[in-house]
């Protein structure tokens, strides 16, 4: 019984993780300008990896009959670093005057 429940949780987390990562990458590939593309990887991909790694933590805890939580370190690290790398790349783009799509409203630094 317990095994079925854990197997179900792991399978669901794996699928959700892969789906989030895929959607993040689709966003990176198809959105029209750089700043819009930035949104896919920072959120969806990070959460996707988070789900996958969480699935791994569940799976190995169950497989080895103990508590295996060191995968959480990766999640923790990714959730702390994702906003930082997004921020630095975005600043670099801003300083290089990367074009935004004409639909983008408001450019506060211009007035």
């Amino acid at each position: 019984m317990m095994a079925t429940v854990i197997e179900f949780i792991v399978a669901a987390l794996l699928l959700a993780g892969a789906a989030f990562a895929l959607v993040g990458s689709i966003g990176l590939a198809r959105l029209p300008d750089f700043f819009q593309r930035l949104h896919g990887p920072t959120k969806a991909t990070t959460l996707g990896v988070g789900c996958t790694v969480l699935a791994s933590a569940f799976y190995f805890s169950w497989l080895e009959g103990g508590i295996s939580l060191h995968e959480l370190l990766i999640v923790m690290f990714l959730f702390i670093t994702a906003p930082v790398s997004a921020h630095t790349v975005a600043r670099a783009a801003l300083h290089r005057h990367v074009k935004t799509s004409s639909r983008t409203r408001g450019e506060p630094w211009k007035h």
Partner: peptide, 13 residues
């Protein structure tokens, strides 16, 4: 750069 960044995150998964 953004593509490379996403690639390494996906490769972790």
């Amino acid at each position: 750069i953004l593509a490379l960044d996403t690639m390494y995150i996906n490769s972790i998964a």
